[in-house]
Amino acid sequence: MVSGGILAGIVVVAILGPLISPHDYLQTNFDALLQRPTLSGARLFGTDDLGRDLFVRAMLGVQVTIVVAIVASIVSLVIGVAYGAIAGYVGGRVDAVMMRFVDTLYALPFIFFVILLMVAFERNFLLIFVAIGAINWLDMARIVRGQTLSLREREFVEAARLTGVSTLRIIFRHIAPNLLGVVIVYVTLTIPQAILVESFLSFLGLGIQEPQTSLGGLVDAGVNQMEGASWMLLIPAGLLAIVLLCFNFLGDAMRDVFDARNPR
């Protein structure tokens, strides 16, 4: 609950902050390089090594990070649910082949392929979404498949089949509503995963490109200025940690609620 509130607060500030602030994220100011954060002044988070306002840049970073994470989670949701539901509902040999494929992919250090992809192609947002989504759909597919499989064997589905309820109606009336809970929980848990991957890529300089930025990119810049300007590291690092922590807590809390409702 608390983590949800904090998240909402961060998002609101991240959207409104740059609009209100007199600075923008591109504007360099060589008279104000590496200024310390001040609570009273106009530079709440100080400035970076190019004299850009760190508050605005950090808020932009939060925006980009969360947008990338949510879109990537939706990508993984769509692929994962469709793949898992088909494998689980069709079952038999189709299921075996489909899941063997997932197992194979599971065994790969996927992130290296993403890096390879990033190296080989021009980096753009779309590619990042797809790449991150492509990593995270595996978990979703496995969970949805497992749930579907067990739902399909449940007696109320069998009763519906016997009576002559159509497959479509079975899927929408009997299977989907019972999948919803677990899907929501795992989407919440996928978002921090996606944030991790995105910020990892940006940290390595393989993700979002300058002058656009994300929290990972800001941490990277902070590491380079660590000894002289520790705020450049600590502020984006702290923000990233808080956002991740909040999503993880939220996901955990939702899983507890879900588990309590479904003791099986």
């Binding site: 921090p192 990892f200 600590l234």
Partner: peptide, 11 residues
Amino acid sequence: ISIPVFVIAPV
């Protein structure tokens, strides 16, 4: 689990 390696290490 919430703090990535690239944040822990420099901190």
